[in-house]
Nucleic acid binder design. Structure first.
Lengths: 327, 327
DNA sequence: TTGTATGCGTTATCAA
DNA sequence: TTGATAACGCATACAA
C-alpha cells in the first residue's frame, strides 16, 4: 500500500498536479495550500516515486559503471573514487560486471538504464560504440581510452621508464622485467622499459622478459625462477605486472637466499596498499586509481551538464616513483 | 530519437499491445505476425525501456547495497561476493554509500528505488526499520544483524576464542589484545578473548587491552608500544582489530628488535589478501567476506521469491584459524 | 488472434 | 492560483 501523489492530493483536497508543483517548489502555488500540502506530505511520509519521475523526465539519474570488478584491486579503487564523488550528487551508481560483458553493455545502451556510463578497462565493440553516440549516452573510458570519447588514462610508458631508469641509476645493468601477456598497458610499459635501457646504452635482451597471465603471488615466484635460470647475472627485476608479483619475487628471492635489495633490486607497479607494509617495503610506481575514479566521474558530469555534449577531453595521470626499501 | 514500442508497432502495422505481447512471448500471437514483429525489432535494434517496464510492473529489478565502502577492504570483498552472484540474474546492484547514511536509507525506503536491500555494517534507526517492513521492501543485514530480519553474521566470539586459545597452547601467557573502540564486534571479540583466558585459568588484565580507532598500520605500531610499556613480559598480541594492525605490530617489533614469532606471537583477524604474503606470514582468523556476500544475496533472493516474505533466517559463518608463521 | 482501453506515478501544458 | 488533461513507455484485461 504505497503512498502516491494521489493520496496526498485526496487528503488535502487538491489535484495531483498541485501536489507535484509543491514538491517541485513551483512558486505559483499559494502559501496557504503549499503549507497544507507539505503538512500532509510530512504526515504520510510521502516521497515521490523514483521510477515515475524517471519516466516522465526522460532521465534515470543512474550512472552505470562497467568494470572487471572480480579480477583486481585496481578496479575496486576506481569504484571507490567514483563513489566518493557521486554521493552528494543526485546520481546513483549502478554496477555492471564484465562477466556478461555484451549483455551488460547492450542493456545500458538500448534499455535506457542510465544517463551516463563509465567503462573501466573495457571497450564495447565498434558498432556498439556508435550506438552509444546515437543514443546520446555519454561515456567515459578509464584506462583503456577510446578515440572520440572522453577518458582517463595513466602514462604507462613514463611509469615503466622512470622505474627502469631508477634501477639503472642504482648501478644495476641486468634488469629483468615481468609483465602481462596482452593489453595496451603491456605494450606501453614494455616500451618504457626499452626506452630507458636504450637511453642509457644498455642492450635489450628478450630473455630478460618474463610473461605472466596475472598479477599474483605465485606467478611472481615462478617468473623470478625463470628469469634467474636464463640470466645468471640478473641484478634487478621490474615487476611491471604489479605489486603482488613483486611480493612473490621478494619471497622467492628470500627462499633462494638472495638478498633484496643488496643482490636483487625489485620495483613494483601500482602502489597498492600493501606495498608499503611488506618487508622490505616495495619501491613502486604509484598509479592513482582513486583519483582516476574521481576524475572519471567529474568528466562524466562535465559531459552531462555541458550543452554541446561534445567533451572529448582525455586526462592523463603521470606516474610517481615511490622509493622504498626494495631497491 | 529513442525507439519505442510504438515505432515498432507503426512499422509493422500492428498496435503497441501486440508488440508488447511478442516481447513477452505471449503464445496468443500468431506465428506470422510474431515473426514480422521480431524482424522489425531486430532491424531497429529495439529493446524495451527499463523505466517504462519498471513502472508498470511495480518492480525495479534493482538491489540496493548500503555499505561503508570508503572505509574498509572488508566491505569491498562483500560487494564482490554479491556482485559475483547478481550477474546472471535479472537484477542490478545499486551502490549507496554511508556518507549520507540517512539520505541513502530513506531514498531506498520511500522512493521505490529498489526491490530489496542489503545492509553491510549499517543499521537504520528503529522507525525506518518499521517502515521497511511496512513498505514490504525485503532487507538483509550483513555483519550487524537486526532482530526480525534475515542476516549474515560471523561468529566473532568463537573467532577471538580460537585465536587466543591457540596462543595459549603455544605456551604464551601474557597475551595482549588490540581492538576497536565500539561496535558489536568489539564486544564479541573481547568476550572470546576473555572466555579463552578464563577457560585456561589465565587472569584477564585490563592493561593488556589496547584500543585503536581503525585497522591501520600506524595504529598497530602505536598500540604495540603502549602494550609493551604497560606489560614488561608481553609474549603475544592478538590483533582483533584486523590484519593491517598485525602488520603494524610486526613491523614495530622488528624495529624494536623483538623477534616474531620467537619472542612475540602475533595473530591477526580477517585473513585479508596480504596476510599470507608478508614476512613472516600472519597467523589469522579467516572471515569469509566474499562468501558472506554471496550468502546475503542468496538470502535476499529467497525472500524475494518466497510467497510469505517472512524469511528471517540468520546464517552464521564460523571462523577458521589460519596458522602461518607469526606464531 | 488482434485491437481498444486503461493504468503504473509523475510532470507539464493549458485552460479556467 | 489551481484544475483538467495528456504524456512518458510499457503491460494487461477485456472486447472484438
Amino acid at each position: 500500500m504505497r503512498i502516491t501523489i494521489k493520496d496526498i492530493a485526496r487528503k488535502v483536497g487538491v489535484t495531483p498536479a498541485t501536489v507535484s508543483m509543491v514538491i517541485n517548489n513551483n512558486p505559483k502555488i499559494s502559501i496557504a495550500t503549499r503549507e497544507r500540502v507539505q503538512k500532509a506530505i510530512k504526515e504520510m511520509n510521502y516521497r515521490p516515486n523514483f521510477t515515475g519521475r524517471s519516466l516522465v523526465k526522460g532521465r534515470t539519474n543512474n550512472i552505470a559503471l562497467v568494470a572487471p570488478l572480480m579480477s583486481s584491486f585496481f578496479t575496486m579503487e576506481i569504484v571507490r573514487g567514483v563513489e566518493s564523488k557521486i554521493s552528494g550528487t543526485e546520481y546513483n551508481l549502478v554496477l555492471y560486471s564484465t562477466i556478461n560483458k555484451e549483455k551488460s553493455i547492450s542493456e545500458i545502451c538500448y534499455e535506457g538504464r542510465a544517463d551516463g556510463v563509465i567503462f573501466v578497462s573495457v571497450k564495447p565493440d565498434d558498432d556498439m560504440l556508435k550506438d552509444f553516440e546515437r543514443m546520446e549516452i555519454p561515456a567515459v573510458f578509464v584506462e583503456e581510452v577510446v578515440d572520440g570519447f572522453p577518458g582517463v588514462k595513466f602514462n604507462n610508458v613514463k611509469g615503466a621508464y622512470v622505474a627502469t631508469e631508477y634501477l639503472l641509476k642504482t648501478k644495476r645493468k641486468n634488469i629483468g622485467i615481468i609483465i602481462g601477456k596482452e593489453g595496451m598497458w603491456v605494450t606501453e610499459r614494455l616500451k618504457g622499459y626499452r626506452d630507458a635501457l636504450e637511453d642509457n646504452d644498455v642492450e635489450f635482451k628478450p630473455e630478460r622478459v618474463a610473461r605472466v597471465s596475472d598479477d599474483t603471488f605465485g606467478e611472481g615466484k615462478e617468473a623470478l625462477r625463470k628469469l634467474l635460470k636464463e640470466n645468471k647475472k640478473l641484478d634487478a627485476v621490474f615487476c611491471a605486472s604489479g605489486d603482488i608479483t613483486a611480493v612473490g619475487v621478494i619471497q622467492e628471492a628470500r627462499q633462494l637466499k638472495i638478498n633484496v635489495p643488496e643482490e636483487l633490486g625489485v620495483v613494483g607497479f601500482d602502489d597498492i596498499y600493501l606495498s608499503g607494509l611488506t618487508h622490505p617495503a616495495i619501491t613502486t610506481v604509484n598509479q592513482p586509481e582513486f583519483e582516476m575514479g574521481t576524475k572519471a566521474f567529474e568528466l562524466l558530469m562535465e559531459v552531462l551538464t555541458s550543452s554541446d555534449k561534445k567533451v572529448k577531453k582525455v586526462i592523463s595521470f603521470d606516474p610517481e616513483l615511490v622509493i622504498r626499501d626494495s631497491t
